[in-house]
């Protein structure tokens, strides 16, 4: 029997006070079961990052409560590892040091050898051993995100939070990293929460998908269970009718949401009638290039 590891109870979150108050999330109820892979899809700016920060402990709800293993979340914890959208690597530390910093915090009593061995194991897991002494600025976007993955996993968290981890990557690197994250996840089956704006990514990776209705006042949409066998093969999935069906259903739901949001915006914005000013147009004719003068 799987237990609920995370529970949202009527959670609302807003920024600002009084007149300026904008409610980002309103009345969210959500349970995440231990060992499951949940994906939350939604438009940009719909409050996905706020949602994940409530679980990581970087933010606290303004109303309701978020429970982790039955206890309200107070601040961050090593039990919940997070992979940030923009990698958030420390640019003055190399790959090894970035990961080792996390390992040292979780296991302060370890010897230098244990520390090195553990860190190197996780760097190897994301295939970065050859780049272990490089600084983040010398790595590509995909490699940086792998370091971030290694850092989060090296803390051996009970729950892995991923905030659009692959959002900034190109489609090919994305695919490779999706498979890598799944491979690592299926090795120890920790609870995972993936925030994404890519429906395909959600369907490919998760057990369950919940769309987030766009904010402000974001609420959760209906949940879709993905009944596909693991390990999933990307190529085979593309022609799988079950995959197609659930993907179309979610996409349709999101598209309808988008249409509804458009209709709501009744206000019209008239753009000022400005003409772009081209270079050279303000200088004297003497300075203009020959072909411009003609």
């Amino acid at each position: 029997m799987s237990e609920n590891i995370v529970e949202f109870k009527n959670v609302s979150k807003w920024y600002g006070e009084g007149e300026n108050r904008t409610e980002v999330l309103s009345n969210i109820n959500l349970t995440i079961k231990e060992g499951e892979f949940l994906a939350i899809v939604g438009f940009t700016g719909s409050g996905k990052t706020t949602l994940i920060n409530l679980i990581s402990g970087l933010l606290e709800p303004d109303e309701g409560e978020v429970l982790f293993k039955g206890k309200p979340i107070k601040g961050t914890s090593h039990e919940r590892g997070i992979i940030f959208q923009n990698y958030s690597l420390l640019p003055w530390l190399n790959v090894f040091q970035n990961v080792a910093l996390a390992v040292k915090e979780v296991h302060p009593d370890w010897s230098q050898e244990q520390l090195t061995e553990h860190t190197e194991r996780f760097i190897e897991m994301v295939h970065l051993t050859p780049a272990k002494n490089k600084l983040p600025k010398e790595l590509s976007g995909g490699m940086r995100q792998r370091v971030s993955v290694a850092r989060a996993l090296s803390m051996d968290p009970e729950m892995l939070l991923m905030d659009e981890p692959l959002g900034a990557l190109d489609a090919l690197t994305r695919g490779v990293l999706q498979e890598e994250i799944l491979r690592i996840w299926s090795a120890n089956r920790r609870t995972a929460l993936l925030i994404t704006n890519d429906v395909d990514e959600g369907v490919f990776m998760a057990d369950r998908i919940i769309p987030l209705n766009p904010g402000p006042n974001a609420t959760l949409g209906p949940e879709y269970t993905i009944e596909l066998d693991r390990p999933r093969d990307k190529k085979a999935l593309n022609s799988d009718p079950k995959f197609k069906e659930v993907r179309t259903a979610i996409l349709n739901y999101l598209v309808d949401l988008g249409e509804a949001a458009k209709l709501e915006k009744k206000a019209e914005f008239t753009l000022p009638d400005y003409q772009p000013m081209m270079p050279h147009s303000r200088t004297f004719p003497f300075f203009r290039r020959k072909k411009d003068r003609a």
Binding site: L58, H78, F84, N86, S88, L90, L101
Partner: peptide, 12 residues
């Protein structure tokens, strides 16, 4: 803020 978030998550 990114670096401060890392510090918070790692509980430095």
């Amino acid at each position: 803020t990114d670096y401060m978030n890392v510090a918070k998550v790692l509980q430095l």
